[in-house]
Simulated scan of single mutants.
Amino acid sequence: MSERLGHKETAVLLVLMTLARPVSNPELKDIVGYPLDGKERRRLNELGLVDSALAPKRFFVHELTDSGWKWAADELAAGTPPPPAARSTFVPAFYLFMGAVDRYLRRENVSLGEVFTSDVELTPEQIEQRVRAGYLKLVRAPGGWVSLVDLRAALGAVNRADVDSVLKEMSRTQQANLVPESNRKALTDRHHEAAIRVGGEDNHLISIEAS
Protein backbone atom coordinates (compact mmCIF):
# COMPACT_ATOMS: atom_id res chain seq x y z
CA MET A 1 0.00 0.00 0.00
CA SER A 2 1.54 3.33 -1.10
CA GLU A 3 0.38 5.43 1.88
CA ARG A 4 -0.53 4.83 5.50
CA LEU A 5 -4.15 4.70 6.50
CA GLY A 6 -5.51 7.34 8.85
CA HIS A 7 -6.10 6.66 12.53
CA LYS A 8 -9.90 6.24 12.15
CA GLU A 9 -9.53 3.72 9.32
CA THR A 10 -6.80 1.92 11.23
CA ALA A 11 -8.90 1.74 14.41
CA VAL A 12 -11.85 0.24 12.54
CA LEU A 13 -9.67 -2.38 10.86
CA LEU A 14 -8.13 -3.39 14.18
CA VAL A 15 -11.60 -3.72 15.73
CA LEU A 16 -12.74 -5.94 12.85
CA MET A 17 -9.59 -8.03 13.30
CA THR A 18 -10.09 -8.38 17.05
CA LEU A 19 -13.77 -9.34 16.87
CA ALA A 20 -13.20 -11.56 13.80
CA ARG A 21 -16.80 -11.34 12.61
CA PRO A 22 -19.20 -9.00 10.80
CA VAL A 23 -19.62 -5.76 12.80
CA SER A 24 -22.42 -3.23 12.27
CA ASN A 25 -22.02 0.54 12.25
CA PRO A 26 -24.04 0.93 15.48
CA GLU A 27 -21.69 -1.54 17.19
CA LEU A 28 -18.61 0.22 15.80
CA LYS A 29 -19.92 3.51 17.13
CA ASP A 30 -20.29 1.98 20.58
CA ILE A 31 -16.72 0.64 20.48
CA VAL A 32 -14.64 3.39 18.85
CA GLY A 33 -17.07 6.33 18.85
CA TYR A 34 -17.85 6.51 15.14
CA PRO A 35 -19.20 4.31 12.31
CA LEU A 36 -17.38 3.36 9.12
CA ASP A 37 -19.13 5.60 6.60
CA GLY A 38 -18.50 8.03 3.79
CA LYS A 39 -15.05 8.35 2.28
CA GLU A 40 -13.43 6.07 4.87
CA ARG A 41 -15.79 3.19 4.03
CA ARG A 42 -15.40 3.75 0.29
CA ARG A 43 -11.63 3.82 0.59
CA LEU A 44 -11.41 0.59 2.60
CA ASN A 45 -13.85 -1.08 0.19
CA GLU A 46 -11.90 0.11 -2.85
CA LEU A 47 -8.63 -1.09 -1.33
CA GLY A 48 -10.23 -4.50 -0.85
CA LEU A 49 -9.59 -4.52 2.90
CA VAL A 50 -13.21 -4.54 4.06
CA ASP A 51 -16.46 -5.97 2.69
CA SER A 52 -19.49 -3.81 3.55
CA ALA A 53 -23.14 -4.79 3.13
CA LEU A 54 -26.23 -2.68 3.74
CA ALA A 55 -28.41 -4.35 6.36
CA PRO A 56 -32.23 -4.25 6.18
CA LYS A 57 -32.32 -1.59 8.91
CA ARG A 58 -30.31 0.70 6.61
CA PHE A 59 -26.94 0.54 8.35
CA PHE A 60 -23.75 -1.00 7.04
CA VAL A 61 -22.22 -4.23 8.33
CA HIS A 62 -18.47 -4.68 7.78
CA GLU A 63 -16.04 -7.61 7.77
CA LEU A 64 -12.32 -7.97 7.05
CA THR A 65 -11.40 -9.55 3.72
CA ASP A 66 -8.39 -11.84 3.27
CA SER A 67 -6.47 -8.73 2.18
CA GLY A 68 -7.67 -7.02 5.34
CA TRP A 69 -6.23 -9.81 7.46
CA LYS A 70 -2.93 -9.50 5.58
CA TRP A 71 -2.98 -5.75 6.21
CA ALA A 72 -3.49 -6.41 9.92
CA ALA A 73 -0.56 -8.81 10.04
CA ASP A 74 1.67 -6.26 8.28
CA GLU A 75 0.36 -3.41 10.43
CA LEU A 76 1.23 -5.17 13.66
CA ALA A 77 4.68 -6.21 12.49
CA ALA A 78 7.56 -5.08 14.67
CA GLY A 79 8.79 -1.62 13.73
CA THR A 80 5.58 -0.35 12.12
CA PRO A 81 4.96 3.29 13.12
CA PRO A 82 1.54 4.42 14.40
CA PRO A 83 -0.88 5.86 11.82
CA PRO A 84 -0.93 9.60 11.04
CA ALA A 85 -2.95 11.90 13.31
CA ALA A 86 -2.96 9.43 16.20
CA ARG A 87 -3.45 11.94 19.03
CA SER A 88 -3.29 9.64 22.03
CA THR A 89 0.02 8.84 23.72
CA PHE A 90 -1.42 5.34 24.22
CA VAL A 91 -1.17 4.59 20.48
CA PRO A 92 2.66 4.40 20.22
CA ALA A 93 2.71 2.19 23.32
CA PHE A 94 0.07 -0.08 21.75
CA TYR A 95 2.12 -0.44 18.56
CA LEU A 96 5.25 -1.19 20.58
CA PHE A 97 3.34 -3.88 22.49
CA MET A 98 1.88 -5.39 19.31
CA GLY A 99 5.35 -5.48 17.77
CA ALA A 100 6.40 -7.76 20.61
CA VAL A 101 3.28 -9.89 20.05
CA ASP A 102 4.13 -10.08 16.34
CA ARG A 103 7.63 -11.34 17.10
CA TYR A 104 6.16 -14.05 19.33
CA LEU A 105 3.63 -15.14 16.71
CA ARG A 106 6.33 -15.37 14.05
CA ARG A 107 8.62 -17.34 16.36
CA GLU A 108 5.83 -19.78 17.24
CA ASN A 109 4.48 -19.86 13.64
CA VAL A 110 1.00 -18.79 14.75
CA SER A 111 -1.30 -16.72 12.51
CA LEU A 112 -3.48 -13.81 13.57
CA GLY A 113 -6.54 -15.84 12.62
CA GLU A 114 -5.64 -18.39 15.27
CA VAL A 115 -5.40 -15.69 17.93
CA PHE A 116 -8.38 -13.50 17.06
CA THR A 117 -11.46 -15.69 16.74
CA SER A 118 -15.14 -14.97 17.01
CA ASP A 119 -16.85 -15.33 20.37
CA VAL A 120 -19.27 -18.26 20.43
CA GLU A 121 -21.83 -17.47 23.14
CA LEU A 122 -24.31 -15.05 21.61
CA THR A 123 -27.86 -13.95 22.30
CA PRO A 124 -30.58 -14.90 19.77
CA GLU A 125 -30.66 -11.25 18.68
CA GLN A 126 -26.91 -11.25 18.02
CA ILE A 127 -27.15 -14.51 16.10
CA GLU A 128 -29.99 -13.17 13.97
CA GLN A 129 -27.90 -10.08 13.21
CA ARG A 130 -25.04 -12.32 12.08
CA VAL A 131 -27.41 -14.46 10.00
CA ARG A 132 -28.75 -11.37 8.24
CA ALA A 133 -25.25 -9.93 7.71
CA GLY A 134 -23.98 -13.24 6.34
CA TYR A 135 -26.99 -13.57 4.05
CA LEU A 136 -26.52 -10.05 2.68
CA LYS A 137 -22.87 -10.79 1.97
CA LEU A 138 -23.73 -13.95 0.03
CA VAL A 139 -26.98 -13.18 -1.80
CA ARG A 140 -26.76 -11.98 -5.40
CA ALA A 141 -30.18 -10.32 -5.64
CA PRO A 142 -32.71 -9.09 -3.05
CA GLY A 143 -34.70 -12.02 -1.71
CA GLY A 144 -32.47 -14.54 -3.51
CA TRP A 145 -31.61 -18.00 -2.28
CA VAL A 146 -28.45 -18.79 -0.32
CA SER A 147 -27.15 -22.23 0.52
CA LEU A 148 -27.10 -23.08 4.22
CA VAL A 149 -23.64 -24.53 3.61
CA ASP A 150 -22.36 -21.07 2.67
CA LEU A 151 -24.37 -19.26 5.34
CA ARG A 152 -23.09 -21.47 8.15
CA ALA A 153 -19.52 -20.95 6.94
CA ALA A 154 -20.06 -17.17 7.01
CA LEU A 155 -21.27 -17.33 10.63
CA GLY A 156 -18.01 -18.76 11.93
CA ALA A 157 -17.80 -20.49 15.31
CA VAL A 158 -21.37 -20.11 16.54
CA ASN A 159 -23.19 -22.91 18.35
CA ARG A 160 -25.09 -25.02 15.77
CA ALA A 161 -28.13 -25.57 17.99
CA ASP A 162 -28.42 -21.85 18.72
CA VAL A 163 -28.25 -21.01 15.01
CA ASP A 164 -30.89 -23.62 14.18
CA SER A 165 -33.18 -22.23 16.88
CA VAL A 166 -32.89 -18.72 15.42
CA LEU A 167 -33.45 -19.95 11.85
CA LYS A 168 -36.56 -21.87 12.89
CA GLU A 169 -37.94 -18.83 14.70
CA MET A 170 -37.25 -16.63 11.65
CA SER A 171 -39.07 -19.20 9.52
CA ARG A 172 -42.00 -19.41 11.96
CA THR A 173 -42.40 -15.62 11.99
CA GLN A 174 -42.06 -15.49 8.18
CA GLN A 175 -38.89 -13.39 8.29
CA ALA A 176 -37.11 -16.14 6.36
CA ASN A 177 -38.04 -18.89 3.95
CA LEU A 178 -36.38 -22.31 4.20
CA VAL A 179 -36.76 -24.78 1.34
CA PRO A 180 -35.21 -28.08 0.20
CA GLU A 181 -32.84 -28.19 -2.77
CA SER A 182 -34.94 -29.35 -5.73
CA ASN A 183 -31.97 -30.93 -7.49
CA ARG A 184 -31.26 -33.76 -5.06
CA LYS A 185 -28.34 -34.97 -7.17
CA ALA A 186 -26.53 -31.70 -6.48
CA LEU A 187 -26.50 -32.35 -2.73
CA THR A 188 -23.20 -33.31 -1.15
CA ASP A 189 -22.42 -34.55 2.34
CA ARG A 190 -21.79 -30.92 3.33
CA HIS A 191 -25.28 -29.93 2.15
CA HIS A 192 -26.87 -32.76 4.13
CA GLU A 193 -24.87 -31.81 7.22
CA ALA A 194 -25.82 -28.12 6.93
CA ALA A 195 -29.53 -28.81 6.35
CA ILE A 196 -32.13 -27.84 8.92
CA ARG A 197 -35.25 -29.93 9.47
CA VAL A 198 -38.48 -27.93 9.42
CA GLY A 199 -41.95 -29.21 8.61
CA GLY A 200 -40.81 -32.81 8.46
CA GLU A 201 -38.20 -32.30 5.72
CA ASP A 202 -34.60 -31.22 5.37
CA ASN A 203 -34.13 -27.70 4.03
CA HIS A 204 -30.94 -26.59 2.29
CA LEU A 205 -31.66 -23.03 1.06
CA ILE A 206 -32.69 -19.80 2.76
CA SER A 207 -34.19 -16.51 1.61
CA ILE A 208 -34.52 -13.64 4.09
CA GLU A 209 -37.08 -10.88 3.83
CA ALA A 210 -35.93 -7.28 4.27
CA SER A 211 -37.20 -5.85 7.53
Rank of each mutant, 00 (worst) to 15 (best):
P26D: 09
R21A: 14
R106K: 15
V120K: 13
L19Y: 12
S67M: 10
Q129G: 10
L122D: 02
G6Q: 03
L64C: 02
Q175S: 06
R58N: 07
L178G: 01
L54T: 08
R130Q: 15
E181Y: 03
E128P: 00
E125T: 10
I31R: 07
R87S: 08
A133N: 07
K57R: 10
F94L: 15
K39G: 08
A194M: 05
T18G: 15
V198D: 12
V23E: 02
S182V: 13
K70N: 09
T10P: 02
F97L: 09
L36R: 00
A157T: 03
V110Y: 02
L54E: 13
E63R: 15
M1T: 12
N25K: 05
L136V: 12
K8S: 12
W71G: 00
Q126H: 09
E201W: 13
F97Q: 04
P26C: 07
E27D: 13
V23G: 00
A78C: 12
D74L: 09
N45E: 15
G134K: 09
N109H: 14
K137T: 12
D102L: 06
G199Y: 11
E128A: 08
R103H: 03
M17S: 06
A77V: 10
K29D: 10
S2P: 06
Y104I: 14
D164E: 14
